[in-house]
């Protein structure tokens, strides 16, 4: 049974989610990937204001395809997360409570998640057509020049994810594989 949550997500709510939980996200989330993360962290380093409300935010690592007439957004599945590892600890420290992507995270990100209370969600990679159906509205709010990599504000409804790494550092990539392998012994 999936747990329904609303974004923005407080640190307290983030801490309640456990690795392996199926979660449906509704509310407002933001998109950012490599180039946008780099710019956000450059602003943060200079102590300047970010173009999104980072407190309690969930950031989705995605660069969608262009929307056709009548679509809110084009295909919009997750990109591989480790490329954001250099930037995520800064954003978590500033208030980010959730990240949506796919693939492994580095120890520096997991340490920041544990310290501040944040979760790492996995969406199904390669399912951009399916996931786009849960995105009801998309609007570029910064870095339009980056094209697919611009920061978008998304309104999502029952967006399906799984908690891969929780705020205690429990990791579904390790546990899922180990549980499966012990089940076939």
């Amino acid at each position: 049974m999936a747990i329904k949550i609303t974004a923005p997500l407080s640190r307290e709510e983030a801490r309640k989610l456990k690795s392996g939980d199926s979660v449906l996200i509704s509310g407002v989330i933001y998109t950012a990937r490599d180039a946008a993360h780099k710019r956000l962290c450059e602003l943060a380093d200079k102590g300047q204001e970010l173009p999104l409300d980072i407190k309690d935010s969930i950031i989705y690592y995605v660069g969608p395809t262009p929307a056709k007439e009548g679509q809110a957004i084009g295909s919009a599945g997750p990109t591989t997360s480790y490329r954001m590892d250099a930037y995520s600890p800064t954003l978590i420290r500033l208030g980010e409570t959730g990240m949506i992507g796919k693939g492994k995270r580095g120890p520096e990100v997991i340490a920041a998640m544990k310290e501040h209370g944040a979760v790492y969600f996995g969406a199904i990679g390669g399912c951009g057509a399916l996931l786009s159906k849960c995105i009801k509205k998309a609007e570029v709010i910064a870095y339009d020049d980056l094209g697919a990599e611009a920061i978008r504000r998304l309104e999502v409804e029952d967006f399906p994810v799984v908690v891969v790494i929780d705020s205690e550092g429990n990791n579904l990539y390790e546990k899922g594989k180990a549980d499966y392998l012990s089940s076939i012994k």
Binding site: G126, C127, G128, A129, L130, K133, S183
Partner: peptide, 29 residues
């Protein structure tokens, strides 16, 4: 045989069926 794996494969099938029907890119990349 693994439950989570079955569910993900079902979603993957559903995804390429949507892409076929609309039609739209199977993956955003």
């Amino acid at each position: 045989s693994w439950g989570t794996a079955q569910e993900i494969l079902d979603r993957i099938i559903e995804n390429y069926e949507i892409a076929d029907t609309v039609p739209q890119p199977i993956c955003q990349d």
